[in-house]
Each structure stands twice: as structure tokens, then as C-alpha cells.
Design a protein around this nucleic acid. Structure first.
Lengths: 226, 226
DNA sequence: TCCCCCAGTTAGATGCATCAAACATGGCGG
DNA sequence: CCGCCATGTTTGATGCATCTAACTGGGGGA
């Protein structure tokens, strides 16, 4: 089972056609995926070799058991991801579609289960916290600016801590050093002296110096341009 | 600005090398991306034509302003997505890496901002709800089974409602019809009669009949095999 | 009945991304 | 000052996915 992403897309498209009760044809598949009929014919040849569908020259297309199983898995992941992106993260339908289309081929069963557990937990939390969820949705309508890693801030600049892309020890260390959301960092300067450089700045009136590891995990919002 | 995903990967890899304070070379890029040096040379040619980097035969590689800007955007999305998947959704590092690598090329600025707003909101909610978050993490360690859409359940089978992949009117309609998590559905049967078929079953001792639209939005857990 | 048109196929080509293998450069050690 | 070898490049090939253009098959309307 080592199919290309594209092959999985064809399976999924065929399953979706079959689910409407119709019989899959080259033309429908082509329309579904936005490619020419010639391309579909070529793809069907590959799929047939893999034993995922039945197809004779000028004949109909039908998934085999194997093909149907694989198609369902891909379809399930697609639907689920798309639902997650739209309902939980507030993506546009179109974007959710695009993202799901590529992600559906990259997640495994374990990952899908985790995602399911997460949404279920959120749905559960929603009951009794409607107010918080309403606020969350509002937040999603006025999204934040985009941060830059400390190591890429211009010399002498200031910023507010946006987030830390770090885990475990490093995260704890940075947190207890005062790198929490909205903390102000000022007078950032890069010096030579270590591989990747040393970054000096002031936070909470304390002069600090960190290496590239820390400086690339600390993301700052640049001050508003006035 | 209509780069292939792969081209963006090369930019990102070069930026990561530059961030360590080193100068990007063909060998380092190749190692970073797991391809041969020949492949890198070919890619650099394309990138140079696009004006994203400077590179003379046998010379060093250096991003241009444009290239650096694009690279930072891709890098930021990658780091952020990866962090989101690991910290919020509990993915393995490896998986998060894989997923971020494909997703980073598909999200736009608006989407990235929403994601940022969501994590910030969650982080905010975490203070004062440590217990709930601890439970969430626990849930993620024992993930659920995987559901199947009602329209694909075997004839005569039973199941428990897992989730609805629907929004707005349809979602509300299904909810008020009793399709909420854990509701039991039994004696599912497919009949001809409409495009896509009609699906009959019993829920809460009431006999129901739905079309393909509803039946593909209702996902059921199949009963445990004993 | 027959032939027209639509559905499907084939042929031939392109572009991207990749590889292995052969070749070119040039800086450093001796 | 010269040659070695790591670094980088070229060449020629493969595989996937795609296209256009030309071709083929076959069922339904005139």
C-alpha cells in the first residue's frame, strides 16, 4: 500500500460518484477532479494495475473491495479534516477544501484518532461554555498580526512576545525567564560570538542575551506602523 | 508569485541554514532536503531565474530580499503549524513535520491569522482550566475508533452517532432530529427510490428515512466486534 | 438502416522532480 | 607550485501527471 497522493484522489473521486448512486465514468471523474479525460484514462490504467478497480476499454469503472476500502479511508479523512477546519478553526470552505486535499494523504490512523478525540473534547467543552465559544468565534473574525522570530528582527527593534515554538525544557526555561505572551522586548541586537550569533535585548528592564536556538523559538509581533 | 511547493521548500531550507549563521551551499541544502546535489543544482537554476536568490557557478548561495521574504513566510507557517500539531493536537513530532511540510504551502495569510487566534484563545482558556486541559491530553492518549458514514454501513447493521460533517441548516436539522453524539441507530437498510438511495433505520424507537445527503453527513461508530 | 455525435482512447509532447554517473573546479597541503 | 579530492555541475535517463490533437466505438434519432 504505497500509493501516490494523486492515485488516492482518483479513488476518492470515484467513491464520491458511487455514493450518489451513479456509475463512475471517465467524464464524471474528469469533471470531478478538473482534469482532461485523457489524464483520467491514464490514471485508471495505473489504478487497474494496482488492483484497485475494474475497468475494460470503453467500459464502466467500479472499485474493487481493496479500492473501496482505501477510498473510504481517504474520504473519511478528507471529510473530517475539512469539517475540522471549517467548524473549529473557521477556515473558509474553499481553503478548508484545499488544505484537506493535501493533508488527507499525510495523516495516519493514529493521528486521525487524535484529531477525533480533540474535536469530541471541544464539542463536549462547548456545552456549558457557550459564551467562551462565542468569544472564540469573534476572535477568529479579527485575527492577529503575524509574528517574526527574534533572530530575524531588525537591529535595534522592539516587539511583543507572540508565542514560543518550543516544548519541554526549552519552553519551561523560556517561560520562567519571562517570555510569556505580550512581554515587551526592546533594543534587539545581533552580535557575533557563537555559531548563529548572540542576541542581546532588554526585557522587564533586564538585559538579556540568548543564542540562536532560543532566538528562533521566540516569536515577536513587530510594533504597529503608525 | 506562483511558486511550486517544492521551490518553497528549497527557499525554506536555505533560510534555515542562513539562520544558523552559516553560508548555504549545495551540499548542505541537499542534506537538509534529502536529495542529491544534482537535484539541488537544478532547483537553484529555477530559483535564480525567479530572482529569489543569487548564485554563480561554483559560488555560494544567498537569498535576495524577495527570496528571503518568501522564505520567512514559508518558514513561519511551517514552524507555527508544526507547533500547533504537536502542542495542541498531540501529534508526534515526525507526523507534525510531515503534515506541516505539505500544509505550509496551502494556507494563506488570513488562514494563518485565524490559526494564530485560535491557539492564542486556547492558551488563554488554559489558565484557570488546567484540569480540563489535563483531561484533554489524557483523551488524546486513548483515541477513539473511526466512524463510517451512514450510507456505507452494511445492511441491517447498528451504530452510534459519532459526528456530523455538516453545517448551518443541515446541521441544525439533524441535531433537532436527534442526531447527537452517542445516539443509537439500528436496522440500517438501503432502498432504491431516489438518486443515491433512501436509507431507513430506527432511532429512539422511531422509524426514520433519509436521503444520501443526510446519510453521508452522519458518521457512525460501528459496534465493537466481540 | 445508417450515420452522427458523444464518450473514451491513443499518441506525442511538456514540465517538474528526481537519480546515477561522469565530468569540471579550485583551494589547500605538501 | 602542483596535484588531490571535496564540492559542484552536466548529461542523460526515469516516472508521474498533465495537456492537445487525432482517432475509435457504439447507441439513439432521423
Amino acid at each position: 500500500m504505497d500509493l501516490t497522493a494523486r492515485v488516492e484522489d482518483y479513488l476518492e473521486a470515484i467513491l464520491e460518484i458511487e455514493m450518489t448512486g451513479e456509475i463512475a465514468t471517465v467524464t464524471k471523474i474528469a469533471a470531478n477532479l478538473g482534469v482532461t479525460k485523457a489524464t483520467v484514462t491514464a490514471a485508471l490504467k495505473r489504478l487497474k494495475i494496482e488492483g484497485l478497480l475494474e475497468h475494460e476499454r470503453y467500459g464502466d469503472v467500479a472499485l474493487t473491495g481493496d479500492g473501496r476500502g482505501t477510498a473510504l479511508t481517504v474520504y473519511r479523512r478528507h471529510e473530517f479534516l475539512s469539517d475540522f477546519f471549517v467548524r473549529i478553526l473557521g477556515f473558509s470552505r474553499e481553503r478548508a477544501q484545499r488544505v484537506s486535499c493535501v493533508m488527507e494523504h499525510e495523516i495516519d490512523e493514529q493521528t486521525e484518532r487524535r484529531l477525533a478525540a480533540f474535536t469530541d473534547a471541544l464539542a463536549h467543552a462547548e456545552r456549558g461554555n457557550e459564551e467562551w465559544f462565542r468569544q472564540l468565534q469573534e476572535t477568529l473574525d479579527f485575527p492577529k498580526a503575524l509574528p517574526v522570530p527574534l533572530c530575524m528582527m531588525p537591529d535595534g527593534s522592539n516587539g511583543a512576545v507572540a508565542r514560543l515554538t518550543a516544548q519541554y525544557e526549552l519552553r519551561r526555561r523560556l517561560n520562567s525567564a519571562g517570555f510569556v505572551p505580550d512581554a515587551m522586548v526592546s533594543g534587539i541586537k545581533k552580535q557575533e560570538g557563537a555559531p548563529g550569533g548572540l542576541f542581546t535585548f532588554t526585557m522587564n528592564e533586564i538585559h538579556m542575551r540568548v543564542g540562536i536556538t532560543e532566538a528562533s523559538a521566540i516569536w515577536l509581533y513587530q510594533p504597529e506602523a503608525v
